[in-house]
Design a protein around this nucleic acid. Structure first.
Lengths: 329, 329
DNA sequence: GGTCAAAAAGAAAACGTTTGCAATAGCTAT
DNA sequence: ATAGCTATTGCAAACGTTTTCTTTTTGACC
């Protein structure tokens, strides 16, 4: 029923070898004339390549697997776009599979799926790799890279922002604006990924350098979500005495913003907020959120490049974008 | 290097047939004892199935292809989650390919990619199918369904909201609240998809039933984006006389909201806004946006069900969610 | 026209599964 | 013990490509 290379060969009056060579552009093993003929009949017959067969024959895949944790989706789109663009460049296709949210079993299964498709490399998007996952990954002999999250475990390569630097710069920025009582909201320090712990370390470092010891209540943990922002603000309370907060993500920043609004705390007049991520969300709230912006698109691009060229551990750039949510003391 | 079914067979002292049957759970063609033995050796050797080979042999795929237009990404996540959940249910995996934004060639190529992987079905997410795409799709003999967008072309099955009804209900809701001068912002009526035209028709129908003929300037076209919302509000101007607007999407709604804010127009006191989509974005702006909420997750679920069961054209439910952006006259 | 190298084309094996069919082993009923 | 089952196992072909190795064709040169 489906038309194969064989049908094309027959119709064009050549061997399947020739058809294969023409259709996969294998240099100059054929004449221009036959090439034209083959291409035309292929077109006419509506031939579609069978990737499964090709990959089986060549023993290599033209696909990269992307495993994505669907929780923090507001920046993963940018990463995926970066991946997609660079993949196109290398004539690769991306197979994206969702790992659910916080479901260890589903996540394991997602990894399994891409491995079984014997992709040439795996990109892990905000995936909190477990020991089991790691074992599976290593056994499969397929290169993999974590995107946007760093791990202590030496064997996990990653491409991400330098989270310590993020925490440090965000906090320093506020210090430079004259703030002294600075909070940190929404970070998660329980995960395998180092993200939360590193940002916290950066925050503490900047504060320490300024001779400030943060009160315990200045630091509110959470899962980077909008609700975590709301909760953090509630924990801070209406009269915290704090003048500025570093939000662990844009969503946390917005949660903070809205709860502050409910409390009648004006941003940035009464409270300054700087959020981490710098996605488009920052621009659609009022006031717009000043942010430490990460280079998500670039992470995607660099991810596939690293897969192509061998492993690399690398930080992507960050920059502070000033909008309207921070005011000097 | 990679361990195959053959290695497992050898190590376990059985034929590859038996291994194949055990590992793919083919009923009771083997004894419990051998099954255990095979499974154990497979595990020990770190065997991973080669999906390409399996799909080639069975002539059928356990994957569905999802082609997604990356523009309107704020609701596609929900759809994808629905797809993913239902796919898991059916032991299917989803291959997601991005079609870029408004790049006809890249879109065509994305469709090509999933076809070449001979998936068992294709889901098109907010893809504005062109004539060329359609030809390709039809020729491939693979069932496909458009999600979230309907087309006039009879041959394109779709699962989406009833856009006429959306426009009608949104407008009627405002009419019931006593509004008379009602605008419509951000719709696109140029595309192949009927979305924009249907919503416009619903809007006009509701107005007509109330005996109102909309002024030309009440209707502002756009591409469903945040900027389209900003632009629309600018076109409306500071003194439009309108008391309510239907926004073509949440992003448009937020654009409207912010530009209104800049003009010193209070929402909902001076202007009511109802937006179409009802994603989480509605809840993170101030005031929260009242919306006609679409069942995106359900679209995803129904999409893979339809692919499993044969084609269906079907509308998913919509409902109005009252939040803070509409006020009775 | 004959020689020879280069270019073009083809035959066949290989990739790792699944599966129809054949073969064997293990029973039960005689 | 034997025929006749059934439950289990194995052989070998098939899936649609790619690629190595051979063979054929072409055409440039004398």
């Amino acid at each position: 029923m489906t038309v194969t290379i064989k049908d094309v060969a027959q119709a064009a009056g050549v061997s399947i070898t020739t058809v294969s060579r023409v259709l996969s552009n294998k240099g100059s093993f054929y004449s221009e004339k036959t090439a034209r003929k083959v291409k035309k009949t292929a077109e006419k017959l509506g031939y579609q390549k069978n990737t499964a067969a090709a990959e089986l024959a060549t023993q290599k895949s033209k696909a990269i697997g992307v495993v994505i944790n669907s929780t923090q989706t507001n920046f993963s789109n940018s990463i995926i776009e970066g991946i997609q663009q660079e993949a196109n460049e290398h004539d690769l296709s991306a197979i994206i599979v969702y790992a659910g949210v916080g479901d260890a079993q589903m996540q394991h299964r997602a990894i399994q799926t891409v491995i079984e498709r014997s992709v040439k490399g795996i990109l892990l998007l905000s995936v909190d790799v477990s020991t089991d996952d790691l074992a599976l990954l290593n056994q499969a002999q397929i290169p993999y890279i974590s995107l946007s999250q760093a791990f202590t475990d030496e064997q996990i390569s990653y491409i991400s922002s330098n989270d310590l630097e993020i925490g440090y710069q965000a906090t320093s920025y506020l210090l430079n604006k004259g703030h002294r009582k600075i909070g940190l909201a929404g970070i998660d320090v329980q995960k395998n990924a180092m993200t939360g712990r590193n940002r916290l370390a950066g925050y503490e470092k900047a504060l320490a350098e300024a001779g400030i010891k943060p009160l315990k209540k200045w630091i509110q943990y959470g899962d980077y979500s909008y609700d975590a922002g709301i909760d953090a603000m509630k924990k801070f309370g209406e009269h915290s005495g704090m003048t500025a907060v570093v939000a662990a993500s844009d969503m946390v920043g917005i949660g903070l913003l809205n709860q502050a609004h409910d409390y009648g705390i004006a941003v940035p007049d009464d409270l300054s907020i700087i959020s981490i991520d710098g996605t488009d969300l920052c621009k659609i709230v009022q006031p717009q959120l000043t942010s430490v912006t990460q280079a998500f698109f670039e992470m995607g691009v660099e991810g596939v490049r690293a897969l192509e060229s061998g492993r690399t551990t690398k930080f992507t750039s960050i920059k502070i974008e000033e909008r309207g949510s921070v005011k000097p003391m």
